[in-house]
Design a protein around this nucleic acid. Structure first.
Lengths: 218, 218
DNA sequence: CTTGACATAGAACGGATGTTCTGATATAAT
DNA sequence: ATTATATCAGAACATCCGTTCTATGTCAAG
């Protein structure tokens, strides 16, 4: 996904770019990076900016003066942003597995949703899905809702997860309970509905954890 | 402090600059502003940017490519703030009327919730309520959820509203329909549940419109 | 030692960019 | 009509900027 290993020089470049953007509102030119980081040639800056882009920290718009901006990884490394952009990877539909986030988030950037860090916490590697259809009502989720997911294949007891039921060929959002004896209990969020019990754990596959549900009505 | 009076052309320039910065992370060049706003000369752009700077909307760094940024006045005019603080006025419990926002929101500010403007839209005068109890499940709202409300006593047909049923002594969240003949239909958000019909309109009192529902599970 | 991958220096090139100057148009006040 | 002010159009210009090419240095692998 993102190569954390960057050289000292690249780190100082990244920091300077972050500070510069914060102070001036626009990115620095390569020659400004030169003098700020004691690099003697623009070609060296260009080279290291390429490395930083490969590592996923910045995005370059070539042939454009000052055409660089911090990518998500770079932003979170340099400055704590108040808002977080999450990619909307697709729709969650009953009968289909949940889309899995591709190796790099940034490139997917088709549609995004913006949330404040305060409400979201410090979690990283999140993505959003739009719910299609009414098959999730037992999870108090409706058509058009947006669920914020954290991709993971194991969840703690009681957490709400997107689970893939092999037998049913269906994805649902349920509270996940690993009960003594290997049995799995899937508890709907709607307290008026009854849980589902599954004796064979291999029949259920956790595709991600639900972190938040958002319903826009305006 | 700031001269609000700017020409139509200057307004469109300001808007484009705001959008461009939001989309690309760096400001546009004067020629890009040219083609975007149907201006045929960079000198005209330069001229109007000077006017915008005089008016306090932007700050120019001359002799620097793409050396402009939105000043505070420009930011609040174009993109407003990116995050909005909403007051959490209290809890919504079945059997009690919804707390009414006092004349000034800010002073109540005990607890607040932070949302990005992008997801919220431009609406103003919003407040948040935390849902207590399971009496709202028919609105796909659960214990602990947060509803963003807009205080208003009338809603359009089909909008989700917090309605106070005098007879029942109860507040519920329902889709509100004024049907021909004066009858009112309250439709649960959960499509598997049946609507409630009320013949006497004076028995229902709209306390606010539901703009968003947020469920945090992390 | 040689090789190759990686990183750096320096300079030159072409395109992009902001500035400036001249001239034109429009509108309102005198 | 004349003047003043504000705005716009076009072109020329110097500079800024990213790219590219060549040469150099470093360091580990063979």
């Amino acid at each position: 996904m993102v190569d954390e290993r960057i050289s000292e020089k690249q780190r100082s470049i990244l920091e300077f770019v972050g500070e510069y953007i914060r102070d001036n509102g626009y990115p620095p030119s390569m020659r400004e990076i030169c003098s700020a980081t004691d690099i003697s040639s623009t070609s060296v800056v260009s080279y290291n900016l390429d490395r930083l882009e490969e590592a996923g920290y910045i995005v370059r718009d070539r042939e454009v003066s000052r055409g660089l901006r911090l990518a998500l990884a770079g932003r979170s490394r340099v400055m704590a942003e108040r808002v977080v952009q999450l990619p909307v990877l697709g729709r969650i539909v009953a009968g289909e597995p949940v889309p899995v986030p591709s190796s790099d988030f940034a490139l997917m950037g088709d549609e995004t949703i913006e949330l404040s860090r305060e409400i979201l916490g410090d979690v990283d590697e999140l993505y959003a899905l739009e719910v299609e259809g009414n098959s999730m009502v037992d999870a108090l989720v409706n058509d058009g809702d947006i669920v914020i997911m954290h991709h993971q294949s194991r969840v703690e007891n009681g957490e709400m997860a997107a689970v893939w039921l092999r037998g049913e060929g269906e994805v649902t959002l349920k509270h996940f309970y690993q009960e003594p004896g290997g049995r799995i209990r899937l508890q709907p969020a709607n307290p008026t509905m009854d849980p589902i019990y599954i004796d064979d754990p291999s029949r259920v596959e956790v595709q991600g954890k639900v972190v938040m549900v958002i319903r826009k009505l305006a």
